[in-house]
């Protein structure tokens, strides 16, 4: 029955409780930080900019007290693919004006090729580390609250800020519930003699999934309807007058974190605009 136990497969980020300055940041600041840094890493120059990002990541993980090993522990399964892609980039990047570093038969290594393959590694590790760190210091409820506080100003122009954050909160609340639901549907169908996922033939396999998926969807829709009724019965109303059990206050720490995020976003853009890596390519 081990294959029916999904709870341990829940890998969408793992929260590590702690009291580090990074843990105690206001949720809004954490969200702004992760958005700025992710966007920055995506636009920055492939090698120098990403190296700066990895530098920042090392400092942040030291502050948070989360070992680098934890941030990259899931990199192993994908490493062979990464190496393969990087090797292909190394040999097959065609750039007319790039200096040829090494040539052997039809394989040529150019400056641009080295740069491209290096960039694939660095960018993947930087983003992986950053997102893992974010989920490690942010409990799920803070993501909902942070989104709400962050989008509140938009509510004036008609953006359903409260509704949106509530959707996120419901999603996080229902992930473990629905995982359990899936397990019990599977057990129920197995006890009725269903053979799930054992067929080698993909078409038969999809057909064997149907008795799981359709009840899962209808059960979820039922739960959504019950939840809506329960909330209405308790006079739930959307709007500014709602208060919360947990409130967040901005402190000096948040100001510093915000400053550092903006600073690094600017730095990433600078690396992009500066194009200092051109020396390798031309």
């Amino acid at each position: 029955m081990k294959e029916l136990d999904f709870s341990r497969m829940f890998t969408l980020g793992q929260y590590l409780p702690g009291t580090s300055p990074l843990h105690r940041l206001t949720p809004q600041v954490k969200l702004i930080g992760i958005i700025l840094l992710t966007a920055g890493l995506l636009v920055t120059s492939p090698v120098l900019g990403t190296l700066a990002g990895i530098g920042l990541l090392i400092i942040l993980s030291l502050i948070a007290g989360i070992p680098m090993k934890f941030l990259f522990r899931n990199a192993l399964p994908v490493l062979p693919f990464l190496i393969l892609i990087a090797l292909l980039q190394l040999f097959f990047t065609v750039a007319g004006n790039s200096p040829v570093l090494y040539s052997w038969g039809r394989f040529t290594i150019t400056g641009a090729g080295v740069l491209n393959s290096l960039a694939i590694f660095l960018r993947f590790f930087a983003l992986m580390g950053l997102l893992t760190l974010f989920t490690a210091v942010t409990p799920s409820r803070e993501i909902g609250h942070g989104t709400e506080n962050l989008t509140m100003p938009l509510a004036r122009i008609g953006f359903p800020a409260h509704a949106f954050s509530l959707i996120i909160t419901i999603t996080f609340r229902f992930i473990p519930l629905l995982t359990e639901e899936t397990e019990s549907i599977m057990k129920a169908q197995t006890s009725r003699g269903a053979r799930i996922g054992t067929a080698k033939n993909p078409v038969k396999r999809i057909i064997s999934y149907m008795p799981i998926l359709v009840p899962l969807f209808t059960a979820s829709l039922q739960r959504a309807e019950q939840l809506a009724e329960a909330m209405e019965a308790r006079c739930f109303r959307q709007g500014e007058e709602r208060t919360r059990y947990v409130t967040y206050r901005y402190t000096l720490r948040d100001g510093i974190a915000l400053g550092v995020s903006i600073l690094f976003f600017g730095l990433f853009l600078l690396f992009r605009l500066g194009q200092w890596e051109r020396v390798f390519i031309q």
Binding site: R173, I175, I206, L216, A224, L227
Partner: peptide, 28 residues
């Protein structure tokens, strides 16, 4: 703003999408 039912359906179906991603049913 969105009605309560729309909010709950959006939340729960998002959760289904995430659950399909973590169980073997999402990818065949």
């Amino acid at each position: 703003t969105l009605s309560i039912k729309k909010i709950t359906v959006a939340g729960v179906l998002s959760a289904v999408a995430v659950v399909l991603g973590i169980t073997p049913f999402g990818i065949i």
